[in-house]
Design a protein around this nucleic acid. Structure first.
Lengths: 227, 227
DNA sequence: CTTGACACAGAACAGGCGTTCGAGTATTAT
DNA sequence: ATAATACTCGAACGCCTGTTCTGTGTCAAG
């Protein structure tokens, strides 16, 4: 008479729906929803069932709960609050090495240590989707992209880019990683350095060019000059 | 028999105490306190009095309240939460113009429009004091500092710098603003560009060199390449 | 078929919490 | 002095909300 999905493993449709609702509610109201509000918007007619799922989400680490306290819950994964988002630090990007990209594990592992928090107000427009990841720049090889050793770059995973986007690309034939503005021209790609005093490089369309992500932000913690 | 202070103008001792308590409670519990909890820790025996002050704080803009909702309040001023800080955007920095610096008005004006929010976790160590300000870079004149047109730089106001600090300086005799790493040498100052491929410039100690601030962070929202 | 974990409903309980009201006291203005 | 204003208390009301308990239908394993 009624169907139930997802017995044990992983996140069910219901779980995801609740998670999403909490996030959107929080964004809109600046505070978490009550159990009953969750039930109402997620088509759950009993508070005990919502509580049931909340408990599971807490055990799986997606949620923190303050027992006995009204609306005492908060998401732990991305966007701890509506006004801040947390992106996963996937690793380092450097000239001669491939670019680490997020796997489809999506959620699960979220060690706060390996993540970067960013105020949502800083985020350009609609990129706020949680589909973001971070890389730490290693080496001075990307100074032509106006990016220093130690800088953190935030990017959106994608395989395609529009003209003018800054992309992180892997040139497998040259065994080279680079950060450039991307332009598709007649029979070649133009990779334009961010530094306007430097010249672009051209990649023939026959040559392999793997776009790994679109750069949306660069963050630099200015340390002491080391020399 | 009992004293009451601060009749009308400004923030009273009571107001400040409540504000402080909400902030500290929020930091510790990750959610706002209830009216009764505030009363308890601020020596107010009646919930109606707490409510009374909360209303005032709301009217004066220090607080937002969600009526009827348990613990429905949040601070609006700086550091809306303990994990984020808001710095004032003082203006633009460009080659031929002096550097805008914060006046001693300190607080008062906090228009969210002219401010930048930063996750506290991004802030290098102890600079977190609210003595920070932001500038928007205008023009390509600072590419030698690895800073682009449109970048946002966060700095701590200071007139002195240690060797290796990146500083924003005004060279009044040259009518020039620049961003460089600062080194004091025998009888001159060495201003070292962040870009390691570029050469330093030297300023004789007789020449005027006004340090306006120490750069602690650079943030770049990557837009489309315009050309 | 039986058993047991799993998913869900519904109702009831109890405490948390914002709100409101009546009343009393101190300060300042008139 | 008198009135108006600012501040404080205590208690009661009633909704909001998390918790808990009992019961039902589903599904897979034994």
């Amino acid at each position: 008479m009624m169907m139930m999905v997802r017995k044990s493993k992983g996140l069910g449709e219901r779980h995801q729906k609740i998670l999403d609702f909490i996030a959107s509610y929080q964004r809109e109201h600046k505070h978490p929803p009550s159990i009953r509000e969750i039930g109402l918007h997620c088509d759950i007619s009993s508070t005990s069932v919502v509580n049931y799922y909340l408990d599971q989400l807490e055990k799986s680490g997606h949620l923190e709960r303050d027992r006995k306290i009204s609306r005492g819950m908060r998401l732990t994964g991305n966007t701890p609050l509506g006004d801040m988002l947390r992106v996963q630090m996937m690793g380092v990007i450097q000239a001669g090495e491939p670019i680490p990209v997020p796997t489809n594990d999506s959620f699960s592992s979220f060690t706060p240590d390996d993540s970067v928090e960013i105020a949502a107000s800083l985020m350009p427009s609609k990129e706020k989707g949680k589909e973001l990841f971070a890389l730490k720049v290693q080496g001075d090889s990307m100074i032509d992209a106006m990016v220093n050793d130690g800088d953190i770059i935030i990017l959106k995973p994608t395989q395609e880019a529009s003209n003018g986007d800054m992309v992180a690309v892997w040139l497998s034939e040259r065994n080279e990683t680079t950060l450039k503005f991307f332009f598709k021209e007649k029979d070649k790609y133009r990779l334009q350095p961010a530094n306007p005093t430097m010249n672009p490089i051209y990649i023939d369309k026959k040559e392999s060019l793997e776009i790994k992500g679109k750069v949306v932000m660069v963050i630099r913690k200015v340390e002491r000059y080391n020399s």
